[in-house]
Design a protein around this nucleic acid. Structure first.
Lengths: 165, 165
DNA sequence: TTATACCCGAACGATTTAGTCAACTAAATC
DNA sequence: GATTTAGTTGACTAAATCGTTCGGGTATAA
């Protein structure tokens, strides 16, 4: 798992779609306007998100993108994986480039770190980010504390989250 | 915090130094030979590691690099921070580029995610990686399980970690 | 004094990022 | 059916980063 700004753009855009998806498909032009991400870049990102099955698209007037799954069944890791092509991590891909005696420390080392970061980000759902975004951002510490309850099986919110826009 | 291969190279090299530091300074040429990383690239990385106070250097014949702190007081996060220049994360740096009403989701969002990843990697010490590297790599699962005990306040090992090399 | 090894910086190709442009297709609406 | 909306695709660009190569330094042990 690689962490760059690309994944952040994708997550930000997905939050936007999740927040404005109440009234039908969300156009990338709207996301672009709200999040200040270039339209064409969004097109590239959403092409990948669509091919990964995270969003669906509706063409023509009134069209746009919508989440393909409920936001509480979509994790940050899903989104990042979709847009950030996987890094090869091992540097000695499949080749026996590994060393004579102590063969490629990085192998198990980084794959395990990746596993951890992946499972961490996999525990944070889009729904949580949206909920967090709705309440008027408290201190960063509080946000952080709030984030650290991945709560594996997120109970679907009884009270519909209320799309005020 | 950004995760790229650059940080992995640095961590790998630091593990190598930690493992071979028993007999005095470790030359970058030796690290280069063992880890298959170009010498000049190592020089760049160790320049940063040195300026960050993670390693010390000895010039001249018989010289090389040594850890500036015990390996159990040095975390993976320390190393990555030292070599990976910080990503600006916020996209709207200091400017009030933030939006009209809902101003820059990414701000608190990603800073909190960064905090988490940082604290996760900050809990893994170089000493743990070295110890893990010494035992003949079991299954990845076992390695992974072993890694997930960050042990926040690392107690200084009564028994010196034993640098047999 | 010479070989060793750290130090420094410039330059390079490859890849990735982020953005732009242009042409196309599907669908809704007038 | 013509037009408009909006997704779809591809090529192309500037900038940054990655990893490397080269060429020179300087300090120090032998």
């Amino acid at each position: 798992m690689r962490l760059t700004t690309k994944g952040r753009f994708a997550v930000t855009a997905m939050i936007d779609v999740a927040m404005h998806g109440g009234e039908g498909p969300v156009t990338l032009a709207a996301v672009s306007g709200r999040q200040h991400i270039s339209l064409s870049y969004l097109e590239q990102l959403f092409g990948k998100l669509r091919r990964s099955g995270l969003v669906g698209s509706v063409r023509g007037p009134g069209g746009g993108y919508h989440l393909a799954k409920p936001s509480d069944q979509m994790s940050v890791a899903d989104i990042i994986i979709a847009v950030d092509e996987p890094i090869d991590a091992t540097q000695c891909g499949g080749r026996e480039n590994c060393h004579d005696d102590r063969r490629c420390m990085t192998h198990e080392l980084w794959s395990s770190l990746n596993e951890h970061i992946f499972s961490f980000l996999g525990g944070i759902t889009l729904a949580e980010l949206v909920r967090q975004q709705r309440q008027p951002a408290p201190t960063e510490v509080a946000v952080m504390k709030d984030l650290r309850l991945p709560s594996a099986g997120v109970p679907p919110p009884k009270v519909p989250v209320g799309e005020p826009v």
